[in-house]
Amino acid sequence: MTVTPPSSPSSSSSPSSRERILARIRAAVAEADDAPAPTRDYLVSHIPDDPAAALDLLHRNLTDYRATVHRITAAGLPRLIADVLEKHGARSVAVPDGLPREWLGATDAEARGDEGPLSARELAATDAVISGCALAIAETGTIVLDAGEGQGRRALTLVPDLHVCVVRAPGQIVASVPLALPRIDPTRPLTWISGPSATSDIELDRVEGVHGPRKLEVVLLLAG
């Protein structure tokens, strides 16, 4: 298997296409009116600046898109995770690097670390994955993964059929998309998740569950 290394000179892109396109653009807009940068008078957030309200809204919106949502404190987390895995009959679970080991303290499901790393086929034969997240957005019911500590490579949270995702409240919850973007590093591989996999391709009716995890269980980990 040969893979074109990213640094290889592009054999097929003729420099002339590049210059031609850029020249055409310059000619096309030469006489155009000035188009100033946007005014951005839209709202930064649509809800009051209140962590409890944001937590409730996140909970509601996640549920609305068919994620199952739990609230728990740290002491109860291992038991909850064990129960969720058992409920779905998950006997093996992928464990991203950096996931707190105590989270798996109560389950007897087989923990599969990613040091190997796990191949796509091994992941497909793994029942569940547990991860943390980078951020959650209340207004849209969205969880953002950035492949950081406790989240693992993108494949880990994609291939197994059950994703259990832990969100720390209130620290990881923001109200809105405009408040989320400054806290996200665009150079990392990012996955924004709003409910389990779904499709509207059959008669524009939403059906849950296609290629991504068909079951999404979100644990809101409360301080205290």
């Binding site: 893979v3 990213p6 969205t142 990392r188 990012l190 924004w192 509207s200």
Partner: peptide, 26 residues
């Protein structure tokens, strides 16, 4: 588009990342 607050999945990537995803991006 789909009349959702947010679509189920949005992927964002910047070039390539060691150990995560494609090794070559064009």
């Amino acid at each position: 588009s789909t009349a959702e607050r947010m679509n189920p999945y949005t992927s964002m990537w910047t070039g390539t990342t060691d150990g995560d995803g494609p090794r070559a991006f064009h």
